[in-house]
Every structure is written in structure tokens, then in C-alpha cells.
Nucleic acid binder design. Structure first.
Lengths: 146, 146
DNA sequence: TATTGTTATACTCTATAACTATA
DNA sequence: TATAGTTATAGAGTATAACAATA
């Protein structure tokens, strides 16, 4: 399996390559996120809340994290003015979370940087290869994993 | 970019798909690692030390982490009998790290689990697609990123 | 009674700065 | 003087258990 981003990719199988690709992509994301003093998890939060307003519990569900973990995560982002909490109209127990304009602006900037960073990676493929790769990866993701 | 593992992959571009794939793969790795009470970083250490004995500084370099971070990382793994420290023959300042038999055994077990978990993912592709995908991803990884 | 979110607590990962032992 | 590793410290991410407020 080789859980590292070593470069030599020749005879290994698809799983090896998948794992190496995943680590390479995560390294890029982590580096860009760190450049804006946000964590990978916060990046995911921004992606999820881009066009949604969710309750804490729903956000936790999306992220696969415990509800108690969300408190600190949202606390820190709120303290920096990137997220905000608000009341939920339907349920007095629930707390909604949503992006602030500053948070959205940061998300857009990070998105652009990620594209700029990853494009040279995907750019090593020619147009035909790119058109081939996307649906192949997409096909793998189509169904949720066990 | 959509930094989340939502399922709908239709019109997005290759970068989106790549990021989603990376998150999906990392989720699998994290879950399996957690099942054995090891972190993703420790999994990477096992991958790197599989067939090598490295100095602390070299291991840090491979992982892209600070040397001070390695101390705790190796401490915890050593305390659990998965790694060991030893003297370096050439340099009295250096400390070598290497897998114990127990560590290697765990690495083999985790490796098998990862393959079992990821194969259904790759298994959704037919043989031709699999033969196409591997070299495409490999081509992207061939050169180190900026 | 059950659910939502928070708090208290504990552990891991991570970095920076200061220290020691060796080169 | 420079390098290797560790320690001290601080902050983020994560989970479990206990709790208050609401349903």
C-alpha cells in the first residue's frame, strides 16, 4: 500500500496509486489552508456551508465528527469572524451555523488557490486523458462506501 | 471545489473530483487506522519505515514535519511496542528509528484492510477502466509539486 | 423521556523556542 | 560554530461523559 507520497509509480496497483494521490492532494490542501491560518477541517466546513445554513448536529453529521467537537471548531471560526451562529426558527434547542461575508470571501480565495495549485498536477495529462480520468474517479465515488 | 465528500459527481471538473476522491480515501484510511488506535500520521510512519531504518531527522523530512514533532510521535509508538529507537553507527548525535516485529505485523494487517476497503471502490470500474486509471493518476504524481 | 448543544476533561498532533550533546 | 534530538510550552482537533434547556 505504501502510505507515503514517494514518487516512483510503476508496477504498483491502483490502490497504491489512489492512496498516494490522496496524500498528494491533501498535502496541497493542508498547505494552502495553513497559509490562511485555517485547518483542513475548517476548509471542509466552508465547503459545506458555502450555500447552506445548517444546525450544529447536521454539520457534525456531514463531517463525521462528534457534536461536542463542533463547539470548539465553530467557536474558533466565529471568533475570527468567518462563521456565525444564529437561532433556529423551528427548534429552540438547535443552533444554526452559516458563513459570514468574510468567511465566504476567504472560501472563494482558497478555492482559487487550490485550483491554481492542482491544475499543474492535472495539467500533466492531455485533454483526452483528463476527459477520461474525471468520469473514472467519479464512477468510484458514485456510491457511498460501506 | 466543494471540499466535502458529497456524492453527486456530474458536471464538476477534474479538480473537484480529485479533491472529493482524496477525502473519500482519507476517510477510509482514518477509519481503519482508528480501529487499531493509530493515527493517520503513524500509518504513514509505518509505510515509510516498512523496509527502512531512518534517523529522526530523515523521518521528519519524509513526513514534512518538524523534528520536535517526531519525538512525541515516536515516543507514543515506542511505548506501544510498534517502533524502536537505536543508536546510529556513524553519528553519535543521530537516533535511528525502525519497526518492531509487532509494528510490522500491525502494518501488514492495516495494509490488507485498506485494500479490502478500497477494492470495492476501485471494483466499480471494469478491468479496462482500472488499467486506464492507474497510469493517469501515476502520471500526475510523477513529478513533485511546486 | 429524548434530543440539542455545551462544558469539562483527556489525549494526540503540530510548531516555536530554548537546551544538550555531539560533530 | 553547526547539527541532532529533546524538552517546555501552547494551540488545534478529537472523543467521552455529564449537564442544562427544550421538545
Amino acid at each position: 500500500m505504501q502510505i507515503e507520497q514517494s514518487s516512483g509509480v510503476e508496477g504498483e496497483d491502483l490502490v497504491d496509486t489512489l492512496v498516494q494521490t490522496a496524500f498528494a492532494v491533501m498535502a496541497v490542501l493542508t498547505r494552502i489552508a495553513a497559509g490562511h491560518d485555517v485547518s483542513l477541517t475548517q476548509l471542509r466546513v466552508f465547503g459545506i456551508l458555502r450555500d447552506r445554513r445548517l444546525r450544529m448536529a447536521e454539520l457534525a453529521e456531514f463531517l463525521g465528527l462528534d457534536r461536542s467537537t463542533m463547539t470548539g471548531l465553530v467557536d474558533r471560526a466565529e471568533r475570527r469572524g468567518l462563521l456565525e451562529r444564529g437561532r433556529n426558527a423551528d427548534d429552540g434547542r438547535a443552533v444554526d451555523v452559516y458563513m459570514t461575508p468574510a468567511g465566504s470571501a476567504l472560501a472563494v480565495k482558497v478555492d482559487a488557490e487550490v485550483r491554481r495549485a492542482l491544475n499543474p498536477l492535472t495539467g500533466r495529462l492531455d485533454a483526452t486523458q483528463r476527459r477520461t480520468l474525471a468520469p473514472l474517479l467519479g464512477g468510484m465515488l458514485d456510491q457511498p462506501n460501506d
